[in-house]
Nucleic acid binder design. Structure first.
Lengths: 204, 204
DNA sequence: ACCATCATGGTACGGTCGTATCACCAAGGA
DNA sequence: TCCTTGGTGATACGACCGTACCATGATGGT
């Protein structure tokens, strides 16, 4: 067997190119030729590693989700050793806001994919259920831990507050994306609600 | 002058057709031929009343926003004479949730348009700033009135809570749209936060 | 050393999309 | 009455898109 190129690496490169060009011109406007040009390869190559556009888009979604997960993890790790639940939740929520180019791209494309998934049955809607649910479980778990440790008021419902915070983060993110408000304003609103939840305890 | 057809009526009919077919198959998937077929007219007619697709889409957005405004107004009016601020806010927020086919369509298409506006400079981003701002002002005004009347705790910030509620409503709406949660769950979460805001007062 | 095979390039094909063009009808003012 | 003009239909055009097909290096196992 000749040449032996790592297909996974190549596919990741092409998926990266898809995400880049889609972030610039919009997911609806990207064709396979655009992706090929962005990746610096020929159209045939894109066809070779992904047989069809549908598979390319699907892979792009997974690539996007994976990259975002890594981003969030990195943010959480970066806040230091044994941080309080509030710091972790804050890092989680802030990472989801479109503050820099990467998060902006993520928010735009993830929303585009979600919209596509509603009408196109070829694009599975499952990632848009599972991923948010996982995030919800994580935040709810952290809140419950905080509540058990007495860091929050006794009347907070961890699950409800987790849902609220994530929904707010998503909604505020869209507002930032379309230019309705700045990232600082969104962060302030989130911070206000974290203050409310953690008002009875102290945090590190 | 012959025939005398009311252009505004015709354009509204075609815009309605655009919204219907886009709600079914996704905004990205609709062409002028689809709109013509849905409206029961020829392609030429769509071209005649809207010269270009860009203008058709723009008119569709305005049509959508106007229809939604009327829907919200109707909901608010329907709750009876001189309702309390909480009831009005609740009606506002609930009307935005994708509960029936019409609100589902609105949420899907408005999100699609917003995503388009981010990358396509032809589609003005202004509606996605002005409309949310107007909603925000309305809710903030109602909250302030409630606070002045002693219906809320003295520590609630009307503007921040208005932003939060609308962002939550939008985020929850998306969650309902993609099937992550049911409309009842979203309504519960919103109700929980309204309870919190109005916890110190009584409402009618 | 050879050849099966992975990897890659170039290009053509069918379809669709937005838009433009040509033709026709109908009606009301001169 | 006739002719100007608004409304409508059918169809053509050029561009682009996703996909398929054909050709050809390059390479490693035997």
């Amino acid at each position: 067997m000749p040449k032996h190129v790592d297909h996974d690496v190549r596919r990741a490169e092409i998926a990266e190119a898809l995400v880049r060009v889609a972030g610039r011109r919009g997911l609806h406007a990207v064709g396979m030729r655009d992706v090929a040009a962005e990746a610096g390869v020929s159209l045939r190559l894109v066809q070779y590693y992904f047989q069809t556009k549908e598979k390319l888009l699907l892979h792009g979604l997974h690539h996007l989700a994976r990259g975002f997960g890594e981003r969030v993890t990195a943010r959480v790790v970066a806040i230091g050793d044994d941080p309080g639940p509030r710091a972790v939740i804050e890092a989680l929520l802030m990472a989801a806001l479109p503050t820099d180019e990467e998060s902006r791209r993520f928010h735009l494309l993830y929303t585009s994919y979600a919209v596509l998934a509603v009408t196109d049955e070829s694009l599975a809607a499952q990632p848009f259920i599972d991923n948010p649910n996982a995030a919800e479980d994580t935040v709810a778990g952290l809140l419950q831990k905080a509540k058990d440790a007495g860091l929050t008021g006794p009347d907070v419902d961890a699950r409800t507050e987790a849902i609220s915070l994530l929904a707010m983060s998503a909604g505020l993110g869209t507002g930032v994306l379309v230019g309705q408000r700045g990232p600082e304003s969104a962060a302030d609103v989130l911070g206000h609600h974290l203050d409310r939840i953690f008002q009875d305890g102290r945090d590190g």
